[in-house]
């Protein structure tokens, strides 16, 4: 089943401090992370996240390992993150929380463009073009299918 969302375009090397600042970490209330997502990067982004696909530049999620960055996006209703390269901890965090990730370069995508993907396939579509993403490992696919690591371990153990 295909899923579509509107693009929210961000630049390269957007670190996890930019996704959720350190001053909002000491809580387990996910709503706080949603409210302040991208606050130090572009304060207009938070309100556009529901139903979006984030189209990032290189090295998205670099820096701190804080899972709150991926959790903020998931909780805000982001459908997937697309980037030519991911910082690896952020990548794993997204998969572990059931947030779809596509490692591919969508050039020329603008804010608001419709981006479509099939959760079982490794490509995304936008502007009438198909962009092949790097294939995930079988285990990562299984974790995503289970909605995240909690669901995956629940099935296995």
């Amino acid at each position: 089943m295909k899923i579509s969302g509107h693009a929210v375009v961000i630049g390269s090397d957007v670190d996890t401090d930019m996704i959720i600042a350190g001053r909002y970490l000491r809580t387990t209330d996910k709503k706080i992370w949603v409210e302040h997502a991208f606050e130090d990067y572009d304060s207009t982004i938070a309100e556009r996240l529901r139903g979006s696909v984030i189209i990032a530049g290189n090295n998205i999620g670099c820096g701190s390992s804080r899972e709150q960055a991926a959790a903020a996006l998931k909780e805000a209703g982001v459908l997937a993150v697309v980037a030519p390269s991911f910082a690896r901890i952020f990548f794993r965090n997204c998969v572990n929380l059931g947030l779809y990730v596509f490692e591919c370069d969508i050039t020329g995508c603008k804010d608001g463009d419709i981006v479509t993907f099939d959760p079982d396939m490794s490509y995304v579509e936008t502007g009438g073009k198909i962009y092949e993403a790097k294939e995930l490992s079988e285990k990562m696919k299984d974790i995503l299918k289970a909605g995240g690591l909690a669901g995956y371990l629940g099935e296995k153990r």
Partner: peptide
Amino acid sequence: ADSHSCTMGALGAFATGVGATDMAGIWAT
């Protein structure tokens, strides 16, 4: 569960960072 866990590579360990859910998974399995 911290990005700078790679520090222990200085001792010849394979040391790397993960997020919180991965850490919980390691505690469990």
